[in-house]
Amino acid sequence: MDILRYVLTILLFFIGIFFLIRCMLEGFNFLFLAASLICFLLAYWIKPKRKNHHRDNAWDWLDLIDFPVEIIYRIITLPFRLLRGIFDFLSPDIP
């Protein structure tokens, strides 16, 4: 079942890249940008977690899939984490 999830993750990641490139080359189109963000987020959520796998050499090549998906996810969620940090700092602590 994990292999199917990895195949779906790879497919969604490449579709997201396609939508992002199409958004940049054909002029800005909000629909393609939103579709690429949704594809990247779905690829992250569908990807099986690495902690479920025991460490053997057969699964090491899957790190090549995990790295770009993780990086794109962190770039997308960074502004939201920064905003949450700002609002947590400004809110008073209620005992």
Rank of each mutant, 00 (worst) to 15 (best):
L42K: 03
D66G: 00
R22H: 10
D63M: 10
I17Q: 07
D2G: 15
L82W: 02
F18V: 00
V7M: 10
C23P: 00
L31V: 13
K49Q: 12
K51Q: 09
N52Q: 07
R22W: 06
P92T: 09
I94F: 13
C23I: 00
F19D: 14
L78A: 15
I15R: 11
M24D: 07
P48F: 03
K49F: 06
R5N: 14
I86S: 01
L8R: 12
I21N: 10
I72E: 02
L12Y: 09
M1V: 12
K51F: 12
W59S: 11
R22T: 06
L83G: 10
L4K: 12
D88Y: 02
D88E: 11
L41I: 15
F40M: 09
L78C: 03
C23E: 15
L31D: 14
L20I: 04
A58K: 15
V7S: 14
D2R: 05
F32C: 04
E70P: 00
I75S: 05
T77R: 03
K49H: 10
R81L: 14
P68N: 04
L31I: 14
L25T: 07
L8P: 00
I38L: 07
D60C: 01
K51T: 14
L64V: 07
N29E: 13
L11Q: 02
N57A: 10
F28I: 06
L11D: 13
L83I: 14
D2M: 02
F30L: 09
S91M: 06
L33Q: 07
S36T: 01
P68L: 05
D66L: 00
L64N: 08
P95Q: 12
V69N: 05
R81M: 09
L64G: 13
Y73V: 01
D63G: 13
L37S: 07
G85A: 12
T9F: 04
C39F: 08
P95N: 11
I86E: 02
I86Y: 06
I3F: 09
D2I: 06
I72P: 01
I3Q: 08
C23H: 11
P79N: 11
H54L: 10
K47T: 03
F67N: 06
Y6G: 01
T77S: 08
I17W: 05
I3V: 06
I86F: 15
P95L: 10
P95T: 03
A35R: 03
I76H: 02
L4I: 13
